[in-house]
Design a protein around this nucleic acid. Structure first.
Lengths: 231, 231
DNA sequence: CTCGGCTGTCACGTAACTGTAACGGAAGCG
DNA sequence: CGCTTCCGTTACAGTTACGTGACAGCCGAG
């Protein structure tokens, strides 16, 4: 499994160091930002999987950052955990209202934050915490890096494997070629968007070997989706 | 969201009672079947959202039921959770390969089963909880790019899809051809206004396939509107 | 080095989709 | 009732987007 990338937005240096250390120990990749502007920049550039956001920030308040994130089309669903000082109960409400997925009250133990992060990731990206993903008669074993369909082993190249995995993590959902390039190839690699077509074909060829039904739906002028329903 | 309907397939009466009680407490609707034949019948008749399937069953084994479900075109994606006795490790593999989405080892606590059920529902049917627009018996799933009427899938071309989406976002409202061109085609594209008529026809044809009532109302010398009411 | 697997790109064919025109019928209007 | 306007319907040619096979470059294993 690829490491989830967590962005910490916090202006206290000591707290950053502490969290950074603890999150990396738990197998996360960690990034830092010290104010709201930098946070928004990092979100656009590094596309974190989750943001830990301090309530009190210089330049832009945490709540404002939260609102702006929710207005970015690319990052509307980015999970956010807010850090708030003790007893700011009304703030808590406003925090959740402004779009945070969870909140942690200071002072807190690092392990509590880790637990919350895992919970939120599990909830919003269920497949991240599973060791195997299945859909219809398809099964992907993440640990063993193996794929079977109806029990029969299927060999996939690395790219096809990541592609299928991405589809399995969001079954039914349509992705444009650009989205797939970002998610599967990485945001800093430039390849032709038609390349996606070729890999989708190779994936199809592998999955449908033996005359099985096609599991990937083409949505003309929109992209592809994993979809077992017959057309 | 409507209550998910869970079908329990289990031959031990005591276990059924226990599960029935606990699942209802959690806000699920619950149905029961005591053997494989009854299970398949119930699936066709009641169309459950998820099946909890015992491995050992009279008349038809759980695994066989599982396979048959996966071969029903209507229910290929029906989530299945298998109940298996402790230590049947090879069975577990075979269970997943035959198409189960998860498994729970006996003995288990009801709350564990509930957690698994919720996890599977979240994972396998994200579209239900995501953004979708519906009107009358019509439903448009934006993430999956799918349209259904009365449960039946409907195929639309890209333009018809955008057109219907625009109507669904403003149900009942009448749009002139020019307004539709601006909204659906874009302000900077010039096409004949009569082109709208053709696409409206194509949309109607797709939506009304099978002798259903027309959902698009023509307003003479004004335009079109989405409208379920009869005149 | 050589080989085989994997990747990205291209070119070509084709199926799906699009816009326009043309015809006929329905609706308004005197 | 005749005329006009507007709309439904069909057909068709042009365009677009996708599927497919081929191929050269890359890279690590042997």
């Amino acid at each position: 499994m690829m490491k989830p990338y967590i962005l910490i937005v916090e202006d206290e240096a000591a707290l950053i160091t502490l969290l950074h250390y603890n999150l990396e120990k738990e197998g996360f990749e960690v990034g830092e930002a010290v104010d709201g502007e930098e946070a928004l920049f990092m979100i656009r550039e590094r596309r974190p999987d989750l943001v830990v956001l301090d309530w009190m920030l210089p330049s832009l308040s945490g709540i404002e950052v939260c609102r702006r994130i929710r207005r970015m089309p690319e990052h509307k669903n980015l999970p956010i955990i807010m850090l708030t000082a003790r007893g700011e109960e009304t703030d808590r409400i406003r925090g959740l209202d402004s779009g945070a997925d969870d909140y942690v009250v200071k002072p807190f133990s690092p392990s509590e934050l880790v637990a919350r992060i895992k919970a939120v990731l599990r909830r919003l990206r269920p497949a991240l915490s599973e060791e195997s993903i299945s859909y219809s008669d398809l099964r992907m074993d993440l640990a063993a890096h193996k794929v079977t369909r109806d029990g029969a082993a299927i060999h996939l190249g690395p790219t096809e494997f990541r592609l299928l995995r991405h589809f399995l993590e969001h079954p039914g959902r349509v992705f444009s070629r650009e989205q797939l390039l970002d998610a599967v190839w990485g945001q800093d690699v430039y390849v032709e968007s038609r390349t996606v077509d070729v890999h989708v074909r190779r994936l199809r060829q592998a999955l449908n070997a033996g005359g099985r039904a096609d599991l990937i739906r083409t949505v003309r002028s929109a992209g592809y989706a994993l979809d077992a329903s017959e057309s």
